[in-house]
């Protein structure tokens, strides 16, 4: 009994890395622009598709190549999303960008359905090999690989944010856009760069979801959007460590409940978890200390 619990917990936490990455994407864009980008999960899955289809069209088979292509394609999609949904809509009107990103979500989904004729496509696993046994516990190597790639992506992102000029500019814009502009930071360029960086991150997440599920389908987009947003809120808006911890937590939590209560009730408990957080800790796990909105 105990071992089943542990097994589902471990599997869930490992796959939860993908939720973390999507959550980081939402949180970063929110931190910099104070806007929600609802098309983010669909852009991520779209990028993963692009990687697969582009490499497939070129006759390649390497899973690594698919991953790199997915990240690059999702970065480009991120830039397009910025141009079409944010750049020309007044910043004082959050409802406008909310709606335009919904339109973008539907558009990307439909392009994917068109390109694949609505059929789910098989996705190559990053690594295949025998399961690792820890006592009675089995650790699936593809899940472990997903976890490792996720951690690596987060580390690179943290370095980028805290050790580079672009990161400095991004953090400046997120604190005070006007002051940042007065210091000579090109606001639109930093915003666009944030979209490209989060896009790349999303592409990696999308490819990892494809790799861990074994296939990709446009049906993944909506649940992923909801889970990503939940992770963002539970982790605390704008907090990257929060998004990471919350992603792993939600992943483990839902997998354990899936084991005990079945797949149809699983998400009900995730929503309840969110409500518990909203009532008792509305700021999330790692709430920002200063309120400057």
């Amino acid at each position: 009994m105990m071992i089943d619990f542990l097994q589902s917990l471990v599997d869930g936490v490992l796959v939860g890395t993908t939720y973390s990455l999507i959550g980081i994407g939402f949180t970063l864009i929110f931190g910099v622009m104070h806007k929600i980008n609802l098309s983010y999960a669909s852009a991520s899955v779209g990028g993963a598709y692009c990687g697969l289809l582009l490499v497939g069209a070129a006759g390649g088979k390497s899973a690594l190549l698919v991953f790199l292509m997915a990240a690059a394609a999702a970065g480009v999609i991120g830039y397009v999303v910025y141009l079409t949904c944010f750049r020309f809509i007044p910043a004082s009107h959050p409802l406008g960008t909310l709606m335009s990103t919904v339109g973008m979500l539907l558009l990307i989904d439909e392009i994917v359905v068109h390109a694949t004729f609505g059929v789910p496509v098989a996705y190559p696993p990053l690594y295949e090999g025998p399961s690792i046994e820890l006592g009675e516990l089995y650790i699936r190597p593809d899940y472990l690989m997903v976890f490792a790639v996720g951690i690596a992506a987060m580390t690179v992102l943290t370095l980028l944010l805290y050790r580079s000029r672009l990161g400095l500019a991004t953090r400046a814009v997120s604190q005070q856009p006007v002051a940042a502009q007065l210091c000579g930071i090109a606001l639109y360029r930093v915003n666009a760069a944030t979209f490209v960086v989060t896009g790349v991150l999303g592409g990696i997440a999308g490819a990892m979801i494809g790799a861990s599920v074994g296939m990709l389908s446009p049906l993944l987009v909506l649940p992923l959007t909801v889970k990503g947003l939940i992770v963002t809120v539970i982790g605390g808006l704008g907090s990257i460590p929060g998004a990471i911890v919350a992603g792993l937590m939600v992943g483990g939590f839902e997998n354990v409940l899936q084991y005990y209560r079945g797949v149809t009730e699983r998400d009900l408990y995730v929503m309840l978890l969110l409500f518990v957080f909203l009532v008792f800790r509305p700021g999330g796990l790692f709430a920002a200390k200063s309120e400057r909105n």
Partner: peptide, 18 residues
């Protein structure tokens, strides 16, 4: 049609944000 659907919503928000 489905492709145009999303694109037209994006376009409408760009042209008439309010």
């Amino acid at each position: 049609r489905n492709l145009l659907f999303g694109a037209l919503i994006v376009l409408a928000m760009n042209l008439r944000p309010h």
